[in-house]
Write a protein that binds this DNA or RNA. Structure first.
Lengths: 395, 395
DNA sequence: TGATCTTAGTTTATATAATAAACTAATTCG
DNA sequence: CGAATTAGTTTATTATATAAACTAAGATCA
């Protein structure tokens, strides 16, 4: 039960000031006082502390608006570094960033899915080790490690409860990493949820209080941001909307259900359709939606398959809209590489089927961080945990 | 932008104390201090104010646990009255309650859907007038009026944007009522959302932080409570999940879409199946699920139709579970009168189709407030707006 | 029975942080 | 050049939570 006391007030206001500086820098103390409603003296005191903590610095003198010229403040993105890792189905991708998600170092590494858990976790730890070695000298150093995984996660313990595509089951990933780096916060979370955080902090979700990030690849997952905060549900399953039924009499999904959305609006569907249409030349190891979209410019059959996929995507988006009524839906993951070939038909399908037009239609847009969403989101999760908690932003 | 100051802290703590007294009365000052972590002196000061404001009263001396006997505190449900109104498709139902949702007066009135807006609003105002006249003498009198409507609502203005079954479109309902009762808060909200509030405050939702109330009748609507708060989305459409597609190749819905859930898990479906199976004797004006469920005990054909409906309900519940990952799903509305005939098969269907069993399965339970959910929820919305705002309960 | 221990609740003094108002600093404008 | 304006700091005040001391009223046990 959260009780209020004076230090809570201070924490809230300090966060608010820091957030404002990050979002609107360069900004003066006077502007902060005006936009927040806080007293000038309060702002000065809080800013002084933030400067002492290296999160803010003065960046010179601004333009006068008829009086004394203001001292401009900036968020200090170089107060520390963040490590973000995406654990894919057959690859690892790690980034080292500053607090502004500028990538200072990155590395991608493939593995065969047949490799065991230990081997994969071992490679991940090598990558993290390498990232930490590359970290520049900063006041706080590496502030934490975020990991995105393709499955359902128990966040407190950092355990991967269920990751079908990796065939992982109850793997205590965070425990291993915390043992190796006991002094650093380690966050393990579902990849779509982290990608949503990435888009929220540094991408297409920045301006929205409520949005849904759709990670469409082999399957479909989602990260749901409500009131500026990631929504996880009671056990972290919120957003597993790839298994929404869109055809009760449809085809069987690997999850045991019938007619799941992700059987129709994913790479799985495209592969099935390519095979059906006798275009199996596209079905080799190096299958890529991006290449397919390029070829589709002069290949109607391919274009049609992408368009079908987009329409099915739209059918499911309708459910996303009715469930969450978001301001925006951000389409990410490999499927988003097809760009308007998929997103256009999805938009049309939504417009065709939706109940109340103008009130309810969200912007349906492409991911901004592209294939880096998850890794950057993993880094952002550390930022959120350590520097800029969203708790007070809501309401 | 919410800033912190000392009076915010006081407001938070006072709300917290009042909430605790309401939830756990009788309770002593010492117990409040222990469970909240607030200082005894702080609690005493806040309680004194709450007593002066008539929201709390001392209710005698409790049992000693080895020392001085405590003064027990109770929530004063008779500090004021609440008016709640349900606007159905062809009836009005109004209640007058105390702050504990005990019904002091109620009235139900039918109308023909062909009557115009003005006539219906007129009848509603007569009902409200009658309720206000019946209100007992209390410190605060009638603290406000809540109205549940079968449609999408813009809450700030209290405008009914779209109510297909009433054929209402952009009706400024709250404006009319606020003109008549300018001194009283008037809340207009979707019926399922208010019913969810009702169950949260006084019914089956009491113990859950995240739950979904399903209003299943002619159509399907939902009220979604996340982090103890009603979630509305950006334009109040969140929870319009009756129009989730469960069969892309299915039958056309009145909303323009194809294969909507509410074509399969609603009274509409039952009526269609009754007709198909040649049981149209049930299809008269006084059609009632409750009667049908009773007859189903010795009528397999009826039992089978209810069971089918329940299975379709389960298919859609899966989507609710994946979207919100709630602790519980509460089934209300006319369809819930069929009890286990419908809820049992729904549970089975969910268990059969769900991805991760133990983590994700919510309790699927029947509404506790039954046909009074909406009206009591309308009253509760006033309570929440005026006496017990949920703002600080979250996180 | 009465001394001591416990628990409930109040009073008093103190600490923290926001605020208002007065102040200094630096600039524009006429 | 002086008045007005804007930026930022200093100082005194206020509201509130808290700790600690205190009063109140019971239980326990020799």
């Amino acid at each position: 039960m959260r009780i209020g006391n004076i230090s809570l007030v201070k924490k809230m206001n300090k966060q608010l000031v820091l957030k404002l500086i990050r979002d609107q820098h360069p900004i003066s103390r006077a502007d902060i006082a005006k936009t927040t409603g806080l007293n000038k003296a309060t702002v000065s005191a809080l800013v002084d502390e933030l400067i002492a903590e290296h999160f803010v610095h003065e960046s010179g003198i601004g333009e006068s608006t008829g009086g004394r010229r203001p001292l401009m403040l900036r968020f200090n993105a170089d107060a520390g570094s963040l490590v973000g890792v995406e654990l894919g189905v057959n690859y690892l991708y790690a980034v080292l960033t500053n607090l502004n998600a500028d990538i200072l170092w990155e590395q991608r590494r493939s593995f065969r899915p047949s490799e065991g858990q230990e081997a994969i976790i071992g490679e991940m730890m090598e990558l993290i080790e390498a990232a930490i070695r590359r970290a520049p000298a900063t006041p706080y150093g590496v502030m934490g490690i975020g990991i995105g995984v393709p499955g359902v996660v128990h966040t407190e313990s950092g355990t991967v409860i269920f990751a079908p595509n990796l065939r992982w089951d109850d793997v205590a990933l965070a425990a291993v990493l915390r043992q190796r780096w006991p002094e650093r916060p380690v966050i393990v979370e579902n990849e779509a949820k982290l990608a949503a955080l990435g888009e929220k902090w540094f991408g297409a979700g920045n301006e929205f209080a409520h949005f849904v990030y759709i990670s469409a690849g082999i399957g479909i997952g989602a990260g749901v941001v409500l009131h500026h905060q990631l929504y996880r549900g009671v056990s972290g399953l919120a957003g597993e909307i790839g298994h929404h039924t869109i055809d009760v009499n449809g085809i069987r999904c690997s999850c045991g259900n019938i007619g799941c959305w992700e059987m129709y609006a994913s790479e799985k569907y495209i592969e099935r359709r390519l095979a059906e249409e006798g275009r199996s030349e596209w079905l080799d190891d190096r299958f890529s939606i991006a290449a397919m979209a390029l070829a589709a410019e002069s290949d109607e059959q391919l274009a049609r398959i992408l368009e079908e996929t987009g329409r099915y995507l739209g059918v499911g988006l309708l459910q996303v809209i009715y469930a969450y009524n978001p301001e925006a839906v951000i389409i990410g993951g490999p499927l988003a590489q097809a760009g308007e070939y998929v997103i256009g038909p999805a938009r049309q399908e939504v417009r065709k089927r939706i109940l109340v037009k103008k009130e309810s239609e969200p912007s349906i847009i492409a991911s901004k961080l592209k294939e880096k969403s998850c890794a950057i989101g993993a880094a952002a999760s550390v930022l959120e945990a350590v520097v800029l908690p969203p708790e007070f932003a809501a309401v």
